[in-house]
Design a binder for these strands. Structure first.
Lengths: 134, 134
DNA sequence: TTCATATATCTGTTTATGCGGATATATAGA
DNA sequence: TCTATATATCCGCATAAACAGATATATGAA
């Protein structure tokens, strides 16, 4: 029961619902999420930690970046499936998904990964330096 | 989105999950719930109000008693269906459901409604006076 | 080793929420 | 009307959790 409540608590926050919605389409690193949701690093990281503690997501470090993906543990599937059904009904989630899709398409068009695409965008907008370590 | 978060917030509390679980089997009045869950009146009423504000339950007054039932609004069905799937997995919910079923069966065996059964139980245990106003 | 970057965690503040006990309200019987 | 009962709400307190900004940690390049 404690676990169930923990899962519902994890789902009862707008930021976390938006993050989970993005992760339904595959793993993402923290900076992707920050970029798509226009949120600060501290906020995104905090909520990802919350989701990890609830067992809903899994993380994997690769160099400097940490990638998050939905946990495969089947006991959470009912709740996550419910969430997926919401995407088409909830405008905010739809908008986020579309923004992610657009980014993925643009990357594909340039023949690069979404990771590289993000780095290039950052360099262009001067948010990052020219040194790439990914 | 606000509404969705509100619903998940409503689901992220043990007491409220237990109440919703009972209501899956039909409407109940506040005192039934207090009796089955062994909880105080203030607590049960507070959580029912919370559920009502989230739109998950509906109330109907009949005399002194107020009956609560699951809201029929179909937009909540996905989440409530998820919850129903949990009953068989979560021991606490299973126990509650069985206690309710036992009470219903005992009432039926005596050829009375569960409402009357509850009143008689109270009188027997001296928790109520002999005056019945229901 | 030193520095820059990505991420995680800490800090102080604010808000939400849980609780039990007390009180208020609504209804029905005497 | 007065009283008892069922329910709702209020009160004070304790804990959880959200936030932004600051700081700490981990990693990779120079």
């Amino acid at each position: 029961m404690k676990d169930i409540v923990k899962i519902y608590k994890a789902l009862s926050d707008e930021t976390r619902l938006r993050i989970l919605n993005l992760l339904h389409d595959g793993e993402l690193c923290v900076c992707h999420i920050m970029d798509i949701l226009h949120m600060g690093q501290s906020k995104v990281s905090r909520h990802l930690t919350y989701l990890k503690n609830a067992g809903l997501v899994h993380d994997r470090r690769k160099g400097l970046w940490v990638y998050y993906s939905l946990s495969k543990n089947k006991s959470y599937i009912p709740m996550l499936r419910c969430l997926k059904e919401l995407r088409m009904e909830v405008r905010e989630l739809k908008v986020d998904s579309e923004r992610l899709l657009k980014m993925k398409k643009a990357a594909k068009l340039s023949g690069i990964t979404i990771d590289k695409y993000l780095i290039i965008s950052k360099i262009k907008s001067n948010k990052g330096k020219a040194r790439c370590r990914c």
